[in-house]
Design a protein around this nucleic acid. Structure first.
Lengths: 231, 231
DNA sequence: CAGGTTGGTAATTAATCACTCACTTCCGCT
DNA sequence: AGCGGAAGTGAGTGATTAATTACCAACCTG
Protein backbone atom coordinates (compact mmCIF):
# COMPACT_ATOMS: atom_id res chain seq x y z
CA UNK A 1 0.00 0.00 0.00
CA UNK A 2 2.69 2.47 0.89
CA UNK A 3 4.25 1.57 -2.42
CA UNK A 4 1.24 2.91 -4.30
CA UNK A 5 0.96 6.11 -2.27
CA UNK A 6 4.61 6.82 -2.77
CA UNK A 7 4.34 6.46 -6.53
CA UNK A 8 1.30 8.69 -6.53
CA UNK A 9 3.24 11.37 -4.78
CA UNK A 10 6.26 11.07 -7.04
CA UNK A 11 4.01 11.22 -10.08
CA UNK A 12 2.24 14.27 -8.74
CA UNK A 13 5.52 16.10 -8.08
CA UNK A 14 6.87 15.14 -11.49
CA UNK A 15 3.84 16.58 -13.19
CA UNK A 16 3.69 19.67 -11.05
CA UNK A 17 7.29 20.58 -11.74
CA UNK A 18 7.64 19.17 -15.22
CA UNK A 19 10.26 16.67 -14.11
CA UNK A 20 11.18 13.82 -16.38
CA UNK A 21 11.78 10.90 -14.07
CA UNK A 22 11.15 8.22 -16.65
CA UNK A 23 14.50 8.24 -18.35
CA UNK A 24 17.09 6.99 -15.94
CA UNK A 25 19.81 7.86 -18.43
CA UNK A 26 22.06 10.40 -16.77
CA UNK A 27 25.03 11.84 -18.54
CA UNK A 28 28.34 12.47 -16.84
CA UNK A 29 27.56 16.16 -16.61
CA UNK A 30 24.18 15.52 -15.02
CA UNK A 31 25.85 13.34 -12.40
CA UNK A 32 28.31 16.12 -11.65
CA UNK A 33 25.53 18.68 -11.40
CA UNK A 34 23.65 16.54 -8.88
CA UNK A 35 26.77 15.91 -6.84
CA UNK A 36 27.71 19.58 -6.78
CA UNK A 37 24.15 20.49 -5.86
CA UNK A 38 24.17 18.09 -2.90
CA UNK A 39 27.31 19.70 -1.56
CA UNK A 40 26.28 23.29 -2.07
CA UNK A 41 22.68 22.87 -0.92
CA UNK A 42 23.84 21.15 2.25
CA UNK A 43 26.47 23.78 2.95
CA UNK A 44 24.49 26.92 2.21
CA UNK A 45 20.88 25.79 2.14
CA UNK A 46 18.57 25.89 -0.86
CA UNK A 47 18.09 29.66 -0.92
CA UNK A 48 21.71 30.37 -0.09
CA UNK A 49 22.97 28.28 -3.00
CA UNK A 50 23.18 30.01 -6.35
CA UNK A 51 22.77 28.13 -9.59
CA UNK A 52 25.94 29.77 -10.86
CA UNK A 53 27.97 28.40 -7.94
CA UNK A 54 26.56 24.93 -8.56
CA UNK A 55 27.41 25.17 -12.25
CA UNK A 56 30.91 26.34 -11.41
CA UNK A 57 31.51 23.52 -8.93
CA UNK A 58 30.16 20.99 -11.43
CA UNK A 59 32.36 22.42 -14.19
CA UNK A 60 29.34 23.01 -16.39
CA UNK A 61 27.62 25.97 -18.00
CA UNK A 62 24.81 27.40 -15.95
CA UNK A 63 22.38 26.88 -18.81
CA UNK A 64 23.01 23.15 -18.71
CA UNK A 65 21.37 22.96 -15.30
CA UNK A 66 18.21 24.56 -16.62
CA UNK A 67 18.24 22.39 -19.72
CA UNK A 68 17.92 19.31 -17.54
CA UNK A 69 16.06 20.46 -14.46
CA UNK A 70 13.94 23.31 -15.73
CA UNK A 71 14.08 25.34 -12.49
CA UNK A 72 16.22 25.49 -9.39
CA UNK A 73 13.46 23.83 -7.43
CA UNK A 74 13.28 21.10 -10.04
CA UNK A 75 16.94 20.41 -9.34
CA UNK A 76 16.21 20.19 -5.63
CA UNK A 77 13.39 17.72 -6.16
CA UNK A 78 15.55 15.60 -8.43
CA UNK A 79 17.85 15.18 -5.44
CA UNK A 80 15.19 14.74 -2.83
CA UNK A 81 12.90 12.21 -4.49
CA UNK A 82 15.47 9.48 -5.15
CA UNK A 83 17.05 10.10 -1.75
CA UNK A 84 13.72 9.66 0.01
CA UNK A 85 12.95 6.42 -1.74
CA UNK A 86 16.45 5.15 -1.24
CA UNK A 87 16.21 5.78 2.51
CA UNK A 88 12.62 4.72 2.98
CA UNK A 89 12.85 1.33 1.35
CA UNK A 90 15.79 -0.04 3.33
CA UNK A 91 14.42 1.41 6.54
CA UNK A 92 11.21 -0.48 6.03
CA UNK A 93 12.22 -3.68 4.38
CA UNK A 94 15.51 -4.60 5.95
CA UNK A 95 14.40 -4.92 9.56
CA UNK A 96 11.51 -7.15 8.61
CA UNK A 97 13.56 -9.84 6.94
CA UNK A 98 16.32 -9.48 9.46
CA UNK A 99 14.06 -10.00 12.43
CA UNK A 100 11.67 -12.56 11.15
CA UNK A 101 14.28 -15.22 10.59
CA UNK A 102 16.22 -14.92 13.81
CA UNK A 103 15.40 -15.81 17.38
CA UNK A 104 18.00 -13.68 18.96
CA UNK A 105 17.01 -11.77 22.10
CA UNK A 106 16.10 -8.11 21.71
CA UNK A 107 19.26 -7.23 23.57
CA UNK A 108 21.14 -8.29 20.47
CA UNK A 109 18.69 -7.38 17.75
CA UNK A 110 18.18 -3.78 18.81
CA UNK A 111 21.80 -2.62 18.89
CA UNK A 112 22.30 -4.28 15.52
CA UNK A 113 19.35 -2.42 14.10
CA UNK A 114 20.58 0.86 15.58
CA UNK A 115 23.99 0.27 14.14
CA UNK A 116 23.07 -0.31 10.54
CA UNK A 117 20.38 2.35 10.55
CA UNK A 118 23.04 4.76 11.75
CA UNK A 119 25.36 3.70 9.00
CA UNK A 120 22.58 4.48 6.54
CA UNK A 121 22.11 7.92 8.07
CA UNK A 122 25.81 8.66 7.99
CA UNK A 123 26.16 7.61 4.37
CA UNK A 124 23.28 9.83 3.32
CA UNK A 125 23.80 12.62 5.80
CA UNK A 126 24.05 15.52 3.35
CA UNK A 127 20.90 14.50 1.56
CA UNK A 128 19.03 13.90 4.80
CA UNK A 129 20.05 17.32 6.07
CA UNK A 130 18.75 18.98 2.91
CA UNK A 131 15.47 17.10 3.19
CA UNK A 132 14.98 17.94 6.86
CA UNK A 133 15.74 21.62 6.46
CA UNK A 134 13.76 22.09 3.28
CA UNK A 135 10.79 20.23 4.72
CA UNK A 136 10.45 23.22 7.01
CA UNK A 137 10.05 25.58 4.08
CA UNK A 138 8.66 23.53 1.20
CA UNK A 139 5.24 22.03 1.84
CA UNK A 140 5.56 19.28 -0.79
CA UNK A 141 8.70 17.97 0.84
CA UNK A 142 7.23 18.23 4.32
CA UNK A 143 4.20 16.23 3.27
CA UNK A 144 6.33 13.59 1.62
CA UNK A 145 8.43 13.21 4.74
CA UNK A 146 5.39 13.06 7.00
CA UNK A 147 3.19 10.81 4.91
CA UNK A 148 5.68 8.68 3.06
CA UNK A 149 8.61 8.37 5.42
CA UNK A 150 7.88 9.08 9.06
CA UNK A 151 4.48 7.44 9.07
CA UNK A 152 5.68 4.32 7.33
CA UNK A 153 8.72 3.85 9.52
CA UNK A 154 6.67 4.44 12.61
CA UNK A 155 3.93 2.02 11.64
CA UNK A 156 6.48 -0.59 10.79
CA UNK A 157 8.04 -0.32 14.23
CA UNK A 158 4.64 -0.41 15.93
CA UNK A 159 3.83 -3.61 14.07
CA UNK A 160 7.07 -5.24 15.21
CA UNK A 161 6.47 -4.13 18.80
CA UNK A 162 3.02 -5.60 18.69
CA UNK A 163 4.38 -8.96 17.64
CA UNK A 164 7.06 -8.82 20.34
CA UNK A 165 4.48 -8.00 22.96
CA UNK A 166 2.53 -11.11 22.04
CA UNK A 167 5.71 -13.15 22.42
CA UNK A 168 6.32 -11.67 25.86
CA UNK A 169 9.51 -9.91 24.84
CA UNK A 170 8.02 -6.49 25.46
CA UNK A 171 5.87 -5.28 28.33
CA UNK A 172 2.20 -5.40 27.54
CA UNK A 173 1.17 -2.72 30.01
CA UNK A 174 2.44 0.04 27.73
CA UNK A 175 0.74 0.85 24.41
CA UNK A 176 2.71 -0.37 21.42
CA UNK A 177 3.04 3.13 20.01
CA UNK A 178 4.62 4.37 23.24
CA UNK A 179 7.17 1.57 23.06
CA UNK A 180 7.82 2.31 19.40
CA UNK A 181 8.33 5.96 20.21
CA UNK A 182 10.80 5.00 22.94
CA UNK A 183 12.82 2.80 20.59
CA UNK A 184 13.00 5.53 17.95
CA UNK A 185 13.69 8.25 20.53
CA UNK A 186 16.71 6.47 21.93
CA UNK A 187 18.11 5.96 18.44
CA UNK A 188 17.46 9.54 17.42
CA UNK A 189 18.93 10.87 20.65
CA UNK A 190 22.04 8.78 20.14
CA UNK A 191 22.60 10.18 16.67
CA UNK A 192 21.90 13.76 17.71
CA UNK A 193 24.16 13.77 20.76
CA UNK A 194 26.86 11.95 18.85
CA UNK A 195 26.86 14.77 16.33
CA UNK A 196 26.48 17.85 18.47
CA UNK A 197 28.31 16.69 21.59
CA UNK A 198 30.72 14.06 20.33
CA UNK A 199 33.07 13.85 23.28
CA UNK A 200 30.64 14.53 26.11
CA UNK A 201 27.72 12.32 25.19
CA UNK A 202 29.44 9.43 23.41
CA UNK A 203 32.68 8.52 25.11
CA UNK A 204 33.30 4.85 24.38
CA UNK A 205 33.44 2.89 21.16
CA UNK A 206 30.15 2.70 19.34
CA UNK A 207 29.46 -0.97 20.13
CA UNK A 208 29.72 -0.40 23.86
CA UNK A 209 27.66 2.77 23.68
CA UNK A 210 24.93 1.04 21.73
CA UNK A 211 24.73 -1.87 24.14
CA UNK A 212 24.43 0.54 27.09
CA UNK A 213 21.77 2.46 25.24
CA UNK A 214 19.89 -0.75 24.57
CA UNK A 215 20.22 -1.79 28.18
CA UNK A 216 18.74 1.53 29.33
CA UNK A 217 15.95 1.17 26.81
CA UNK A 218 15.06 -2.39 27.73
CA UNK A 219 15.38 -2.26 31.51
CA UNK A 220 15.17 1.41 32.40
CA UNK A 221 17.35 3.74 34.37
CA UNK A 222 15.63 3.51 37.76
CA UNK A 223 17.66 2.42 40.76
CA UNK A 224 16.58 0.15 43.63
CA UNK A 225 15.03 2.95 45.66
CA UNK A 226 12.82 4.25 42.86
CA UNK A 227 9.69 2.17 43.06
CA UNK A 228 7.72 1.10 40.07
CA UNK A 229 4.63 3.07 39.26
CA UNK A 230 1.40 1.14 39.13
CA UNK A 231 -0.12 1.50 35.72
CA UNK B 1 31.59 29.67 35.02
CA UNK B 2 29.22 29.24 32.13
CA UNK B 3 28.04 32.76 32.87
CA UNK B 4 31.45 34.19 32.09
CA UNK B 5 32.00 32.16 28.93
CA UNK B 6 28.61 33.16 27.63
CA UNK B 7 29.34 36.86 28.14
CA UNK B 8 32.67 36.44 26.43
CA UNK B 9 30.97 34.96 23.42
CA UNK B 10 28.33 37.67 23.28
CA UNK B 11 31.01 40.32 23.53
CA UNK B 12 33.03 38.70 20.80
CA UNK B 13 30.07 38.53 18.44
CA UNK B 14 29.09 42.09 19.20
CA UNK B 15 32.55 43.31 18.32
CA UNK B 16 32.89 41.13 15.24
CA UNK B 17 29.63 42.38 13.76
CA UNK B 18 29.62 45.89 15.17
CA UNK B 19 26.49 45.23 17.18
CA UNK B 20 25.49 47.63 19.86
CA UNK B 21 24.10 45.48 22.64
CA UNK B 22 24.71 47.96 25.43
CA UNK B 23 21.72 50.15 24.90
CA UNK B 24 18.64 48.16 25.74
CA UNK B 25 16.46 51.06 24.61
CA UNK B 26 14.35 49.80 21.74
CA UNK B 27 11.92 52.02 19.95
CA UNK B 28 8.52 50.85 18.75
CA UNK B 29 9.83 50.46 15.22
CA UNK B 30 12.77 48.38 16.35
CA UNK B 31 10.39 46.07 18.18
CA UNK B 32 8.33 45.68 15.05
CA UNK B 33 11.39 44.97 12.93
CA UNK B 34 12.48 42.21 15.29
CA UNK B 35 9.03 40.69 15.39
CA UNK B 36 8.66 40.77 11.62
CA UNK B 37 12.13 39.28 11.25
CA UNK B 38 11.26 36.37 13.54
CA UNK B 39 8.25 35.52 11.44
CA UNK B 40 9.88 35.87 8.06
CA UNK B 41 13.14 34.17 9.00
CA UNK B 42 11.25 31.21 10.43
CA UNK B 43 8.99 30.94 7.41
CA UNK B 44 11.54 31.36 4.64
CA UNK B 45 14.88 30.85 6.31
CA UNK B 46 17.62 33.45 6.62
CA UNK B 47 18.68 33.44 2.99
CA UNK B 48 15.14 33.17 1.71
CA UNK B 49 14.04 36.24 3.64
CA UNK B 50 14.63 39.60 1.99
CA UNK B 51 15.24 42.71 4.02
CA UNK B 52 12.62 44.48 1.92
CA UNK B 53 9.96 41.95 2.90
CA UNK B 54 10.89 42.33 6.55
CA UNK B 55 10.69 46.10 6.25
CA UNK B 56 7.34 45.85 4.55
CA UNK B 57 5.92 43.50 7.18
CA UNK B 58 7.22 45.75 9.93
CA UNK B 59 5.76 48.82 8.25
CA UNK B 60 9.14 50.49 8.16
CA UNK B 61 11.54 51.81 5.55
CA UNK B 62 14.18 49.33 4.54
CA UNK B 63 16.96 51.72 5.48
CA UNK B 64 15.73 51.77 9.06
CA UNK B 65 16.73 48.14 9.44
CA UNK B 66 20.28 48.91 8.37
CA UNK B 67 20.43 51.99 10.55
CA UNK B 68 19.89 49.83 13.62
CA UNK B 69 21.37 46.48 12.73
CA UNK B 70 24.09 47.39 10.26
CA UNK B 71 23.74 44.22 8.15
CA UNK B 72 21.18 41.50 7.59
CA UNK B 73 23.32 39.14 9.59
CA UNK B 74 23.47 41.69 12.37
CA UNK B 75 19.70 41.58 12.49
CA UNK B 76 19.80 37.80 12.73
CA UNK B 77 22.25 37.88 15.60
CA UNK B 78 20.17 40.46 17.42
CA UNK B 79 17.40 37.86 17.41
CA UNK B 80 19.53 34.88 18.19
CA UNK B 81 21.64 36.14 21.06
CA UNK B 82 18.82 37.20 23.38
CA UNK B 83 16.85 34.09 22.45
CA UNK B 84 19.77 31.86 23.33
CA UNK B 85 20.31 33.47 26.69
CA UNK B 86 16.61 33.48 27.43
CA UNK B 87 16.39 29.75 26.73
CA UNK B 88 19.65 28.72 28.31
CA UNK B 89 19.14 30.33 31.67
CA UNK B 90 15.75 28.82 32.51
CA UNK B 91 16.79 25.45 31.15
CA UNK B 92 19.75 25.40 33.47
CA UNK B 93 18.56 27.15 36.57
CA UNK B 94 14.95 26.10 36.97
CA UNK B 95 15.46 22.36 37.36
CA UNK B 96 18.09 22.86 40.01
CA UNK B 97 15.94 24.80 42.42
CA UNK B 98 12.91 22.72 41.61
CA UNK B 99 14.62 19.46 42.37
CA UNK B 100 16.76 20.35 45.31
CA UNK B 101 13.91 21.30 47.56
CA UNK B 102 11.58 18.39 46.89
CA UNK B 103 11.72 14.76 47.81
CA UNK B 104 9.24 13.57 45.25
CA UNK B 105 10.05 10.33 43.44
CA UNK B 106 11.55 10.57 39.96
CA UNK B 107 8.31 9.19 38.57
CA UNK B 108 6.77 12.54 39.41
CA UNK B 109 9.71 14.87 38.96
CA UNK B 110 10.58 13.76 35.46
CA UNK B 111 7.21 14.23 33.76
CA UNK B 112 6.95 17.64 35.42
CA UNK B 113 10.34 18.59 34.04
CA UNK B 114 9.41 17.34 30.59
CA UNK B 115 6.19 19.26 30.70
CA UNK B 116 7.52 22.68 31.53
CA UNK B 117 10.56 22.29 29.28
CA UNK B 118 8.13 21.52 26.46
CA UNK B 119 6.11 24.59 27.26
CA UNK B 120 9.30 26.62 26.96
CA UNK B 121 10.05 25.07 23.59
CA UNK B 122 6.56 25.72 22.31
CA UNK B 123 6.58 29.33 23.41
CA UNK B 124 9.88 29.98 21.68
CA UNK B 125 9.46 27.65 18.74
CA UNK B 126 10.03 30.14 15.93
CA UNK B 127 13.23 31.41 17.49
CA UNK B 128 14.45 27.91 18.25
CA UNK B 129 13.80 26.84 14.68
CA UNK B 130 15.80 29.77 13.35
CA UNK B 131 18.66 28.96 15.68
CA UNK B 132 18.72 25.27 14.82
CA UNK B 133 18.60 25.79 11.07
CA UNK B 134 21.09 28.63 11.01
CA UNK B 135 23.48 26.74 13.25
CA UNK B 136 23.93 24.42 10.28
CA UNK B 137 25.10 27.27 8.07
CA UNK B 138 26.60 29.89 10.37
CA UNK B 139 29.61 28.71 12.33
CA UNK B 140 29.30 31.35 15.07
CA UNK B 141 25.79 30.22 15.88
CA UNK B 142 26.74 26.57 15.74
CA UNK B 143 29.55 27.12 18.19
CA UNK B 144 27.32 29.06 20.52
CA UNK B 145 24.73 26.30 20.51
CA UNK B 146 27.33 23.61 21.04
CA UNK B 147 29.47 25.31 23.65
CA UNK B 148 26.99 27.50 25.43
CA UNK B 149 23.72 25.63 25.24
CA UNK B 150 24.00 21.91 24.53
CA UNK B 151 27.09 21.38 26.64
CA UNK B 152 25.74 23.25 29.61
CA UNK B 153 22.36 21.56 29.59
CA UNK B 154 23.99 18.19 29.21
CA UNK B 155 26.45 18.72 32.02
CA UNK B 156 23.69 19.95 34.26
CA UNK B 157 21.70 16.78 33.65
CA UNK B 158 24.76 14.58 34.21
CA UNK B 159 25.37 16.30 37.51
CA UNK B 160 21.78 15.64 38.62
CA UNK B 161 22.00 12.02 37.53
CA UNK B 162 25.17 11.60 39.49
CA UNK B 163 23.48 12.83 42.63
CA UNK B 164 20.49 10.58 42.02
CA UNK B 165 22.75 7.58 41.53
CA UNK B 166 24.33 8.19 44.93
CA UNK B 167 20.87 8.28 46.47
CA UNK B 168 19.98 4.97 44.83
CA UNK B 169 17.28 6.49 42.64
CA UNK B 170 19.15 5.66 39.44
CA UNK B 171 21.02 2.50 38.50
CA UNK B 172 24.71 2.71 39.18
CA UNK B 173 25.75 0.13 36.61
CA UNK B 174 25.26 2.60 33.76
CA UNK B 175 27.53 5.63 33.28
CA UNK B 176 25.84 8.87 34.30
CA UNK B 177 26.25 10.32 30.81
CA UNK B 178 24.41 7.38 29.27
CA UNK B 179 21.53 7.91 31.67
CA UNK B 180 21.54 11.64 30.95
CA UNK B 181 21.46 10.93 27.23
CA UNK B 182 18.50 8.61 27.76
CA UNK B 183 16.54 11.22 29.68
CA UNK B 184 17.18 13.87 27.04
CA UNK B 185 16.52 11.44 24.19
CA UNK B 186 13.10 10.48 25.46
CA UNK B 187 12.14 14.13 25.85
CA UNK B 188 13.47 15.07 22.43
CA UNK B 189 11.76 12.10 20.83
CA UNK B 190 8.49 13.06 22.43
CA UNK B 191 8.64 16.59 21.06
CA UNK B 192 9.71 15.47 17.61
CA UNK B 193 7.07 12.77 17.18
CA UNK B 194 4.43 15.03 18.62
CA UNK B 195 5.20 17.55 15.92
CA UNK B 196 5.71 15.37 12.87
CA UNK B 197 3.29 12.54 13.68
CA UNK B 198 0.72 14.15 15.96
CA UNK B 199 -2.04 11.57 15.73
CA UNK B 200 0.05 8.42 15.35
CA UNK B 201 2.69 8.90 17.99
CA UNK B 202 0.85 10.90 20.63
CA UNK B 203 -2.68 9.68 21.02
CA UNK B 204 -3.73 10.51 24.56
CA UNK B 205 -3.68 13.71 26.56
CA UNK B 206 -0.23 15.00 27.29
CA UNK B 207 -0.22 14.14 31.01
CA UNK B 208 -0.93 10.48 30.29
CA UNK B 209 1.59 10.36 27.47
CA UNK B 210 4.28 11.88 29.64
CA UNK B 211 3.68 9.45 32.47
CA UNK B 212 3.92 6.51 30.07
CA UNK B 213 7.07 7.96 28.60
CA UNK B 214 8.53 8.33 32.07
CA UNK B 215 7.52 4.79 32.96
CA UNK B 216 9.30 3.45 29.87
CA UNK B 217 12.34 5.54 30.69
CA UNK B 218 12.55 4.47 34.32
CA UNK B 219 11.71 0.79 34.05
CA UNK B 220 12.33 -0.10 30.43
CA UNK B 221 10.27 -1.73 27.76
CA UNK B 222 11.40 -5.34 28.14
CA UNK B 223 8.81 -8.03 28.83
CA UNK B 224 9.11 -11.05 31.17
CA UNK B 225 10.76 -13.26 28.57
CA UNK B 226 13.51 -10.81 27.70
CA UNK B 227 16.25 -11.47 30.20
CA UNK B 228 18.48 -8.82 31.60
CA UNK B 229 21.91 -8.49 30.12
CA UNK B 230 24.78 -8.81 32.54
CA UNK B 231 26.82 -5.65 32.51
C1' DC C 1 17.82 79.42 20.06
C1' DA C 2 22.25 77.43 18.35
C1' DG C 3 24.25 72.86 18.16
C1' DG C 4 24.51 68.05 18.44
C1' DT C 5 22.54 63.59 18.66
C1' DT C 6 19.11 60.14 17.40
C1' DG C 7 15.25 58.01 14.67
C1' DG C 8 13.66 57.64 10.38
C1' DT C 9 13.33 57.63 5.22
C1' DA C 10 13.26 58.11 -0.23
C1' DA C 11 16.19 57.37 -3.74
C1' DT C 12 19.85 55.07 -5.49
C1' DT C 13 23.67 51.84 -6.01
C1' DA C 14 26.39 47.79 -7.77
C1' DA C 15 26.06 43.11 -7.58
C1' DT C 16 23.81 39.03 -7.98
C1' DC C 17 19.92 36.32 -8.87
C1' DA C 18 17.16 32.68 -11.63
C1' DC C 19 16.32 32.00 -16.02
C1' DT C 20 16.23 32.41 -21.57
C1' DC C 21 17.78 32.44 -26.23
C1' DA C 22 20.17 31.49 -30.22
C1' DC C 23 23.42 28.63 -31.30
C1' DT C 24 26.96 24.66 -31.71
C1' DT C 25 28.44 19.97 -30.76
C1' DC C 26 27.73 15.31 -30.16
C1' DC C 27 25.83 10.72 -31.06
C1' DG C 28 22.80 6.93 -32.47
C1' DC C 29 20.28 5.46 -36.35
C1' DT C 30 19.24 4.13 -41.00
C1' DA D 1 27.29 9.50 -45.06
C1' DG D 2 23.96 12.27 -43.28
C1' DC D 3 19.81 13.37 -40.77
C1' DG D 4 17.47 14.44 -36.31
C1' DG D 5 17.23 15.03 -31.82
C1' DA D 6 19.43 15.46 -27.48
C1' DA D 7 23.36 17.54 -24.82
C1' DG D 8 25.65 21.50 -23.95
C1' DT D 9 26.92 26.47 -24.01
C1' DG D 10 28.14 31.98 -24.17
C1' DA D 11 26.00 35.91 -23.73
C1' DG D 12 22.76 37.96 -22.23
C1' DT D 13 17.64 39.33 -19.79
C1' DG D 14 14.93 41.94 -16.29
C1' DA D 15 14.11 41.60 -11.61
C1' DT D 16 15.65 41.59 -7.00
C1' DT D 17 19.13 41.79 -3.62
C1' DA D 18 21.74 43.91 0.51
C1' DA D 19 23.58 48.01 1.50
C1' DT D 20 24.62 53.29 1.07
C1' DT D 21 23.72 57.96 0.46
C1' DA D 22 22.04 62.32 1.54
C1' DC D 23 18.72 64.26 3.80
C1' DC D 24 14.71 65.60 7.14
C1' DA D 25 12.46 66.07 11.75
C1' DA D 26 12.34 65.69 16.50
C1' DC D 27 14.51 65.76 20.33
C1' DC D 28 17.38 67.10 24.37
C1' DT D 29 21.20 70.33 26.51
C1' DG D 30 23.24 74.56 27.62
Amino acid sequence: MEEKEWKDWVHWVAEEYGLDLSKERVTEKQRRILEAAIHIFSEKGFEGASTSSIAKKAGVAEATIFKHYKTKKGLLLHLVIPALSRVVVPFILKPVVKILDTDKPLGEIIPELYEDRMKLVEQNWRKIQIILVESLYQPEIREAVQNHVATIIYEEVVERVDAWQKKGLIREDLPAYVVARSILSMGLGFIVTKNILPDKAVQEDQKTELSWTTEALLHGIAGPLEKKETL
